[in-house]
Design a protein around this nucleic acid. Sequence first.
DNA 1: AATTTGCCCAACCGCAGACTC
DNA 2: GGAGTCTGCGGTTGGGCAAAT
Length: 195
Amino acid sequence: MPTAPTRSRYLKRDANRGAWTSEEDQKLAQVIETHGPRRWKLVAAKAGLDRCGKSCRLRWLNYLRPNIKRGNISDQEEDLILRLHKLLGNRWSLIAGRLPGRTDNEIKNYWNSRLSKKIKQKENQSKFLELHQSQDPRNNAAAAHSVAGNEGGTSKREEEMKTDFSRDEFLDSFNEGPLNLEWMSRFLEMDETWF
DNA sequence: AATTTGCCCAACCGCAGACTC
DNA sequence: GGAGTCTGCGGTTGGGCAAAT
């Protein structure tokens, strides 16, 4: 019985896989220079590469594209990634769009290999602290007072609406091209309670 | 010196939405 | 409008390398 066609059949199944050679890079870059970075299937064919279009696109975006920064993610960039991830979740391409020269793949890798561990460590630390503080009756009284104090202020729903509004505005601004790194950091620092 | 382990990163895969005819 | 195709995205895999044993 024939299996239902899947999108995967559009991939060049018998194509070359694995690491790219500098010769392949050169061919790809040459074709993109004349045809532009689109119609990837055509680009692969024009370059005479035994690669599928997808593979060519990925190679271009993650490695050959001009102005790519490689390695050494700065503290400022790391901080920005952490904040943006809190805001956007695993929207790597959006996050990468705010970090000039960085690719979504690089940020995803950086997150998975380093930042996610850092965060887990922090969470464990704060859980440990919470546990110890909650065993102290003085802290429980202070916590109860703090909750009572909030009851007279703005409602939770109002707070949520405010946050949603700001977040929507922020996300809208994402469609308007890359922003200055420093500006972005300052913007995210404006209201830590967001996160 | 040989082997194992863990980490990093490039590349692949499948899916969903956009586009084209 | 619908089928076929392309593009972009996020998740996952696997090879290379260095550190640990």
